[in-house]
């Protein structure tokens, strides 16, 4: 440590720095979140794995062994579980840290003070959430297959499944960011339950959407949930033989929802960051 009042040889008088390029600053902000994500890989694994794997175990292994569920159910269910992991992991991985960062620690201030339009910081958060969601989807596929002993495997459908999961993760991130930046901290827990539960149970994770024609009102309800299109998209890509919504419908709806929610979530974020 240098002496307190001794002038130390520093750089010459501060000249106003020129503004660095937006791309470079964006990459630096992204790099921080990627580094943290990399370090928390096991956290994601637990966060991702537990609920879907328990669901698979109970619905397939337990109920299947009792003869309550048919043998083919796991094949229908696994694509839904992959879709669920993508959307909900993205949602949680952006919402929970944001509540903390905007809440009592205000850790995000340092990134908000970067010479970058605030919207880009929000977009960076969505990118990281999407990466985490996709990572979850990719991990749950083999883990789920190990759990139930088999899995639908159709390499030709993987690119479509990937794109659908990506859109689902992006949407999940946008929902999470909108919630975290608009709701008061004390209500965040209850809201998560209120939002997440219907997303899961009306998202066609367990059943193909066309077969809901036997309960028309419920079919309408599920059609309002973006999760449905993620489940159907992944299922259609991996199991073309099972009745499903056409891929173009899923992609169109998901793209539209993603565009709208991106606008909403970035706006919520910016309003929270700059008052």
């Amino acid at each position: 440590m240098t002496a307190l009042d001794t002038p130390t040889p520093l750089r010459p008088t501060a000249t106003p720095p020129s503004r660095p390029g937006t791309g470079r600053v964006f990459a630096a902000v992204l790099r921080r979140d990627l580094m943290v994500t990399g370090r928390e890989l096991w956290v994601i694994l637990v966060q991702v794995g537990l609920t879907p794997l328990f669901m698979l175990f109970v619905f397939d292994t337990v109920l299947g062994s009792q003869g309550l569920v048919g043998r083919g159910f796991a094949d229908v269910f696994l694509p839904g579980i992959i879709a669920l992991a993508a959307l909900t992991t993205a949602l949680q991985s952006v919402a929970l840290p944001l509540v903390k960062e905007f809440g009592f620690t205000m850790e995000i201030e340092d990134r908000l003070m970067a010479p970058l339009p605030t919207g880009y910081v929000a977009i960076g958060k969505l990118v990281i959430a999407t990466i985490r969601g996709l990572l979850a989807a990719v991990l749950i596929y083999p883990l789920g297959a190990l759990m139930v002993g088999s899995a639908p495997w159709r390499p030709a459908g993987l690119p479509l499944a990937f794109v659908v999961a990506l859109l689902g993760a992006w949407i999940g991130g946008a929902i999470g960011m909108s919630l975290a930046t608009t709701l008061p901290v004390q209500r965040i827990n209850v809201t998560f339950s209120v939002i997440l539960t219907p997303i899961i149970w009306t998202g066609c994770i367990h059943y193909p959407w066309p077969r809901l024609s036997s309960v028309p009102w419920y079919q309408v309800v599920t059609a309002l949930n973006p999760m449905t299109y993620v489940s159907e998209g992944v299922r259609g890509a991996l199991l073309p033989g099972v009745p499903h919504l056409p891929a173009w419908v899923c992609l169109t709806v998901l793209t539209g929802v993603a565009v709208v929610l991106t606008w909403v979530s970035v706006r919520c974020f910016t309003r929270r960051a700059i008052q």
């Binding site: 937006t22 630096a28 620690t105 201030e109 003070m113 010479p115 700059i274």
Partner: peptide, 29 residues
């Protein structure tokens, strides 16, 4: 605002250091 931020720095009253990073990383990042 983004251009203005290139010229200024803020030290707030509350501790807003990035807890996910070490002290050195806080400076580097």
């Amino acid at each position: 605002p983004a251009a203005a931020r290139a010229h200024l720095a803020v030290v707030p009253q509350h501790n807003n250091l990035d807890r996910a990073l070490t002290p050195r990383q806080n400076l580097v990042y």
